[in-house]
């Protein structure tokens, strides 16, 4: 069963002393080392770090795409594998990864058409209506468009709708807006916050943009590069209702400066 004991109920993801090493023929690359981090239920936590600091690796361990070399990772009180099999995890990749031969709506339906039937029962909830999800991400009128007919931002929104269709309790996002221009990215950030509030999903959001991390998160975890270690976590005490103008407030700038200090402190070591 996935139901966690009462004391842990508020912890969605628990990472304890995680290390990940990639071994090829001759070399061993340590991507992550000694990472300990808890993600609370319904939290939006950003993982901030420079390129090569193991951000994607961390998400991939949580999603059971690669195994941990050492340490313990628990998702919703069980193993990452059990959470994945229960369809409790949604994943948004950096480059949308839509199937080009499926229209937007059919891409959103894909998760409902694969895997075991018991996914529905195990995730404890109903499945979302694909059409409503497309409306939610603002693409209700592009349901029958093929990916090549959509802009990069639209594709990413389809990918988010697809990740939400099984009503996952945990949503992992790997630089989902990294390839978008700043204007689109800020619009997508606001939309993501709205979706997060409306769905109550726990979100782990990977980025290497400080301002994106501050704008979105309740908490930021900063990783240092090679090997990736946790430089620290940073609470973001900004009002829940985040308007674009918030980026110009002194509070926002102060948190951004703290994040930068953590990043640079990590890089110097």
């Amino acid at each position: 069963m996935l139901g966690p004991p009462a004391t842990e109920r508020t912890t969605a993801i628990s990472i304890d002393g995680l290390a990940v090493a990639f071994t090829s023929r001759r070399t061993t690359v340590t991507a992550l080392e000694g990472v300990t981090l808890d993600v609370r239920e319904r939290e939006l936590l950003s993982i901030l770090g420079p390129s090569g600091s193991g951000k994607s690796t961390l998400l991939r361990v949580i999603a059971d795409l690669i195994p941990a070399s050492a340490g313990r990772v628990a998702v919703l009180g069980g193993t990452p594998a059990s959470a994945r099999r229960a369809r409790a995890i949604g994943f948004v990749f950096q480059h949308a990864e839509l199937l080009p031969w499926r229209t937007a709506i059919d891409n959103v339906k894909l998760p409902l058409q694969v895997g075991r039937r018991r996914a529905k029962a195990a995730s404890g909830g109903e499945q979302a209506d694909p059409r409503e999800l497309l409306e939610l991400v603002g693409l209700g009128d592009r349901a029958d468009a093929y990916p090549r007919q959509l802009s990069g931002g639209m594709r990413q929104r389809v990918a988010i709708a697809r990740a939400l269709v099984t009503r996952p309790r945990v949503l992992l996002m790997d630089e989902p807006f990294g390839a978008l221009d700043e204007i689109t990215r800020e619009a997508m950030n606001r939309e993501l916050l709205r979706i997060w509030r409306e769905t109550g999903t726990t979100i782990v959001f990977v980025t290497h943009s400080i301002s994106e991390a501050v704008f979105l998160s309740q908490r930021i975890a900063v990783l240092t590069p090679q090997p990736g270690r946790l430089a620290g976590t940073l609470p973001v005490d900004l009002p829940a209702d985040r308007r674009p103008e918030i980026r110009d407030t002194p509070e926002f700038v102060a948190v951004a400066a703290q994040a930068r200090a953590l990043l640079e402190g990590g890089a110097r070591r």
């Binding site: 991939r60 999603a63 059971d64 795409l65 994945r84 099999r85 369809r87 995890i89 949604g90 994943f91 990749f93 480059h95 990864e97 199937l99 894909l110 998760p111 058409q113 694969v114 895997g115 075991r116 996914a119 099984t166």
Partner: peptide, 17 residues
């Protein structure tokens, strides 16, 4: 792509899927 394979794995899709 390897990413498509990962996408299907996240969805716990079978080899047949």
């Amino acid at each position: 792509s390897p990413q498509t394979v990962e996408l299907f794995r996240v969805m716990s899709a079978s080899k047949a899927d």
